[in-house]
Structure formats: C-alpha cells, structure tokens
Amino acid sequence: MTESAGIIILSYCGAIGLILLGVFAMVMYRHLIRIIFGLMLLEAGVNLFLITIGYRANAVAPILVDGQIPAAAMVDPIPQAMVLTAIVIGVGVQALALALVVKTYQAYRTLDTQELAQKLAKETGVDIIEGTPVYLPSPLAAHKQILEEKST
C-alpha cells in the first residue's frame, strides 16, 4: 500500500468520524448550544469528505510554479473552490443560529429543548411530547388561542 492510499483512507475515516459525531450530537443532546456544536462538527466532516474526493494519488496543489504547469499531476481544483465557499457560508449560518439562540434565551430563560417544549406547551396549550410526532399548532389557531386567553 502506498503512502497516498494510506492518506486517503485516513482522511475518509476522519471525515466519517466527524460526520457521525456531529449527527450523534445533533440527535442525542437536548441543549441548543450542544446541537450547534454538532452542526459545526458535521460541517467540518463534510468539508473534509469533499476535499478527500478531490485528492489524487501523488498529486501536487493546483498552483503553478513560475508560470509553468508542473510535471506531476495536480489535484482537482473544483471541490476545493466549493469547500472554500462552504466554510464561509457555514460561519454565516452559525452566526444566524447563535443569534436565534440568544433571542430564545432572552425570551424563555432556558436553552434546554425539553424545558422549552414545556414552556411552549404552557403558552400555547398544545403538548409537544418527546418521542411522539410533533404536531405544531398552526400559527393562526395559536394566535386566536392567545387572543382568547388574553380576553378572558
């Protein structure tokens, strides 16, 4: 087995590990910040996966030296360009998610999803029980309900 094949296997294993850890954090934890940690890990794993797909054995980086195309093969530049944009987009999405987390904390004083569900159930009168399909109230009905509660 050559060195390049070892590098490819290692980075695929790293990418798969990061993706699985991210999915694990996103589905098993109840704290919103932990879920965002999982999102970041998942995103890093997917980026590594894409870069590894573009990697070729014994190739060099897609940058010319002194204007000459090097003798060795070069790696695929298109996944690299896509990942470059994906990293920056990921930070933008993360900033938006964290801003929503801050607003949630200001409104409900908690970040635990179960406590949030209880508080929401108390507010809207609709139970959201963990483990069963979630039936969110339609916004119009919930609004009407809140108006009725306020009037009574």
């Binding site: 980026n47 870069i51 573009g54 990697y55 190739a59 060099v60 940058i63 690299q80 470059l84």
Partner: peptide
C-alpha cells in the same frame, strides 16, 4: 487540508 494538497482551504 494542507496534507491533502489544498493550501487555500
């Protein structure tokens, strides 16, 4: 990423 020949990334 640097090992995988992607210095920009």
């Amino acid at each position: 990423f640097f090992v995988l020949q992607a210095p920009d990334v």
